[in-house]
Simulated assay, not measured.
Amino acid sequence: MATAVATTPPSPKAGTGADAGRPRKPVLAGAAVVGAVLIAVPLALAGGAHDKDGGKPSTTVAAQGADTVLQPESAPAALDDYVAEKPTASPSKKKPVKSAAPVAAAPQPVPPAPRPSSSPSRSAKPKPKPKPKPAPKPNWSTETVSAVSVLEVNQAWTTNRIRMVMQTDGNLVVYNELDKPIWASMTFGQNHRAIFQSDGNLVIHNGDDRPIWASKTHGHEGAQLVLRADGKVVVVHNGQVIWST
């Protein structure tokens, strides 16, 4: 606050002209003191207000001291808007998350590859193979021998397919069209002969004229010895075969 200071009027003493217009030294000293007091009081008041607010700068003083206020009606910024985060000593390092190991899937059985169809497609039918022509059946002949008939050595009853021969070794043998033996009496000796007798029995006599082999078809008068087309030699009586090679 301002303090009133009384000034001493100049002495009525008469002086020189220079002293009458200049203030005296005591007056100047008092004016200096008054000016210092006027400057110190506002500063003291501002410092006291700063101490009471806890060291925070007064937003009101800053607003009054500003040269230009863009939005005087807006509220001043809150102090919390300018609070900075505390820096950390070192940047945080996040531990990498270990991913789970992939589980191997169980191997699936591989289906077998489809086998190619052996049957031809319906669209492409194979041409039928021409059937081989059957070989013509040979016209085999038949020979009938009536009783009494005799085969000497190297003689034979024959057809165009088979032959019954009395060999020199005494064996009565039947040969087929390929000249292969298909039946034999197995009688070996000299001067044998085969006789188809009137009783229907086929008998082989040796050189002494004794029977050594027989078809055992005796007792069938009128029987026949037949060389058939199927390669068989049979004794037939009344249409029935009673003996066969």
Score class of each variant (00 low, 15 high):
152 E>F: 02
119 S>P: 00
34 V>C: 04
184 A>Y: 12
74 S>H: 13
212 I>A: 00
40 A>E: 05
201 N>I: 05
115 R>P: 04
234 V>D: 08
197 Q>Y: 07
227 L>H: 01
80 D>Y: 11
8 T>A: 10
182 I>Q: 15
123 S>G: 14
176 N>M: 11
144 T>Q: 00
60 T>H: 03
48 G>V: 02
29 A>Q: 11
232 K>S: 07
5 V>R: 12
192 H>N: 15
201 N>G: 02
156 A>T: 01
21 G>N: 11
45 L>D: 02
156 A>K: 04
106 A>R: 09
194 A>G: 12
4 A>E: 06
137 K>F: 00
66 A>V: 12
36 A>W: 06
245 T>N: 12
82 Y>S: 15
224 Q>N: 13
88 T>C: 03
110 V>R: 15
242 I>V: 13
114 P>L: 05
44 A>K: 00
104 A>M: 05
192 H>R: 04
217 T>P: 06
24 R>D: 14
94 K>M: 13
51 D>Y: 00
129 K>S: 06
55 G>D: 00
53 D>G: 03
186 M>E: 15
232 K>C: 00
162 I>W: 07
42 P>F: 04
144 T>M: 00
150 V>G: 01
98 K>G: 10
46 A>Y: 03
184 A>W: 14
81 D>M: 14
42 P>V: 05
184 A>V: 12
218 H>A: 11
124 A>S: 13
159 T>L: 04
195 I>W: 09
175 Y>Q: 15
32 A>R: 09
121 S>H: 09
108 Q>M: 15
107 P>Y: 08
167 Q>E: 12
84 A>N: 12
122 R>C: 01
207 G>W: 03
205 H>K: 13
159 T>R: 10
126 P>R: 00
77 A>W: 10
96 P>L: 08
27 V>S: 11
50 H>I: 03
75 A>H: 05
238 N>P: 02
88 T>Q: 14
179 D>P: 08
9 P>E: 01
82 Y>V: 14
137 K>V: 05
20 A>Y: 06
104 A>Y: 02
196 F>Q: 09
95 K>P: 10
19 D>N: 04
40 A>V: 13
193 R>W: 03
96 P>W: 05
37 V>D: 08
238 N>K: 15
98 K>L: 12
29 A>F: 07
136 P>Y: 02
174 V>Q: 07
175 Y>I: 12
186 M>D: 15
100 A>T: 05
120 P>T: 05
244 S>R: 13
242 I>F: 09
149 S>P: 07
66 A>W: 07
215 S>M: 07
130 P>C: 03
54 G>F: 02
117 S>P: 03
97 V>P: 11
25 K>I: 03
164 M>E: 07
50 H>K: 04
128 P>N: 05
14 A>W: 08
107 P>S: 15
29 A>R: 15
155 Q>N: 13
123 S>D: 14
160 N>E: 11
146 S>H: 12
12 P>Q: 02
33 V>F: 02
78 A>T: 13
21 G>D: 11
29 A>S: 11
115 R>W: 03
62 A>S: 11
147 A>I: 06
49 A>H: 01
222 G>T: 07
